[in-house]
């Protein structure tokens, strides 16, 4: 540092750390480079690199006689996704993800609204704990707990018996598509557990979005003649939509990829996650597993594109 003016300096007593700080202050680009390189490498190689490897696998195919992977680029594996059995899996998973997302949004919105607008002080803390605490315990424990609740001899059955409503439960379980032998082996059971497990991921982004809506904006809407329902439709929902979309990205993609919940609770029919698990594990059909894994990525991409086109992010 021969070029610096001596009188402006603290003197030779400066430590190495101070001099490093000084150098970095004078060269912000260097600082940025030092800070960004490790995470960029992590993101680039570990995340995107492996995703790219996966994508590449999906363009290979498997020789069904030898079970060996043919490393020629082909779309044959993707074509396999559209066989009735495989397409059924995709349709079931996407359908489940859609209704889980919708139900989560409907349940989460009032909770988030209350938390953002009315909860104060200690109530706010309690509320956060209530939302977050289920996330702290093991996901498996929660899923098995739900199995006990939903099983044929489970808590829910007792409650229906106690209320003399067993006929109602039986009638519900007799319904096609959503019913089954008991709730724990029905699609309804899978749905309930998905909604339960993913709900916090919906509540928190919606709450964050609602907290940024000043109360005066809702008052202004009412002042201009809007009933509370109209205010919700024209002001609150559009302003909260980025939060709802953010939440739905979580619930939708988590449901699309999950393979544990449908395995423990629900029918024996497969979801995408289970299909991936089986194809890459037992069957050794890595290309098909990879192709299945690409499906949620494509669906999320399309979903976000539509959301953007519909102006969901205009309020950001």
């Amino acid at each position: 540092m021969a070029d610096t003016h001596p009188s402006a300096q603290a003197g030779p007593s400066e430590g190495l750390l101070t001099r490093v700080s000084d150098t970095l202050w004078r060269r912000p680009t260097l600082l940025l480079l030092i800070l960004l390189t490790p995470p960029a490498l992590w993101l680039g190689i570990i995340y995107l690199g492996s995703l790219f490897a996966l994508l590449l696998q999906s363009f290979f195919s498997i020789d069904h006689f030898t079970g060996l992977i043919n490393h020629e680029i082909t779309l044959a594996t993707y074509a396999e996704l559209f066989t009735p059995a495989n397409f059924d899996i995709i349709r079931r998973t996407v359908g489940m993800a859609t209704i889980v997302t919708l139900a989560s949004a409907v349940i989460a919105f009032p909770i988030a609204y209350y938390a953002a607008r009315y909860a104060k002080g200690a109530w706010r803390a309690i509320f956060y704990l209530g939302i977050m605490m289920p996330l702290w315990s093991s996901y498996l424990v929660k899923v098995y707990a739900w199995k006990l609740i939903l099983a044929k001899e489970g808590i829910l059955t007792w409650i229906f018996e106690w209320l003399h409503l067993t006929w109602l439960l039986d009638a519900y379980l007799a319904l096609p598509v959503i019913g089954g032998n008991s709730l724990s082996v029905s699609p309804t059971g899978t749905f309930l557990v998905f909604v339960y497990v993913w709900l916090p991921y919906m509540v928190l982004p919606i709450q964050a979005a609602l907290e940024r809506v000043p109360g005066s904006m809702l008052e202004a809407s009412g002042d201009l003649g809007a009933t509370p329902a109209q205010t919700f439709r024209h002001v609150l929902l559009p302003l909260a939509l980025p939060g709802v979309i953010a939440g739905s990205i979580f619930t939708f993609s988590l449901t699309l990829g999950d393979y544990i919940i449908p395995q423990i609770i629900g029918t024996s029919r497969l979801f995408i996650g289970q299909a991936v698990y089986q194809h890459q594990g037992i069957a050794g059909n890595i290309p098909l597993a990879a192709a299945f894994a690409v499906v949620p990525i494509v669906i999320m991409g399309v979903y976000l594109w539509i959301a953007k086109r519909m102006g969901a992010f205009d309020a950001l």
Partner: peptide, 11 residues
Amino acid sequence: TVFQDYALFPH
């Protein structure tokens, strides 16, 4: 009402 923070709808 004309609000102190104007309360214009940002969207």
